[in-house]
Write a protein that binds this DNA or RNA. Structure first.
Lengths: 147, 147
DNA sequence: GTACAACTTCAAGTCGACTTTAAGTCAAGG
DNA sequence: CCTTGACTTAAAGTCGACTTGAAGTTGTAC
């Protein structure tokens, strides 16, 4: 259990080996010890990856996760790190929810109220209402592939 | 008003000219009439762009918007087109909301319950709990630049 | 005649989080 | 010795929605 290959670790944490190499490359994981050129990991690496996975689950970007590990003075307790980053993320999530909610509202209104025959007619109505200049950009279809 | 340049149209609908050319390129807009090589637009193009902007506001991808215009038999009324696509999108938005909500829940729990000193300790806890294999992928920080 | 602004095309660049590909290395088994 | 499988690297590709850049054309003003 002390020395695992990259694929053993990948299996344990539910990642592809390429992702683990990538994390190392961007400095999210410290360079692994090598045994005749191959990476060898112990449980601390697995724990670190568990944290990374959890953080991704919480909506953190890899850059934010790097902050979690490296963006504080070494004495800063983990709990405080989490709290600091979580506050910002929570606000972001709320903003995102609001964005989605307004899409939903508008979508429902659209479904109820539109009786246009042609798209052109529809466009004329929208254009007159003037409320089309803003562009909230959709948060993306969620749920990415998971190996 | 009958004949506008691309930049006049861009101004009216709040897009960059490059976006309009791009829409033409991917077939979202029909190729514009040319006057000595330059594109000339009338109000129907503006209406079409108004529809596109509104649809983007509702969370539709450009591909979905293309469906809105080209994915139905020509006789299909606009209102019916909207309703068909909106139903799917509404379901997607709901799924996205659920994803965000579960992130929020987990985030709050994390903030309350984590008292770890070190990240390593934190990782051990997460790893033991086993609930880190899934990877919901965050919907993206919303609100993209708007020209 | 030439400067200028506004347009044109086509190709390439951007962002984030990876994956894929090509070419090479290594240890074990037959 | 040779194959096999798991690993290695660096570079390039992927996705969506554009933007940016380079190089060229057009019409108008001075």
């Amino acid at each position: 259990m002390a020395e695992m290959t990259i694929s053993a670790v990948a299996r344990q944490v539910g990642l592809q080996t390429s992702a683990i190499r990538y994390y190392e490359q961007i400095g999210l994981l410290p360079p692994a010890q090598r045994s005749s050129g191959q990476r060898r990991y112990d449980t601390t690496a697995v724990y670190r990856l568990a944290v990374i996975q959890r953080a991704r689950q919480l909506g953190f970007t890899l850059e934010e996760i790097r902050q979690l590990f490296l963006g504080f003075r070494p004495v800063t307790p983990a709990s405080e790190r989490w709290r600091k980053l979580s506050q910002k993320k929570l606000a972001e999530l709320d903003a995102m929810m609001d964005g989605i909610k307004s899409m939903r509202r508008l979508l429902r209104k659209m479904m109820q109220r539109c009786h246009c025959e042609t798209m052109d007619q529809c466009g004329r109505g929208i254009f007159r209402s003037g409320a089309f200049t803003v562009t909230p950009k959709l948060p993306e279809t969620s749920l990415r592939r998971n190996r």
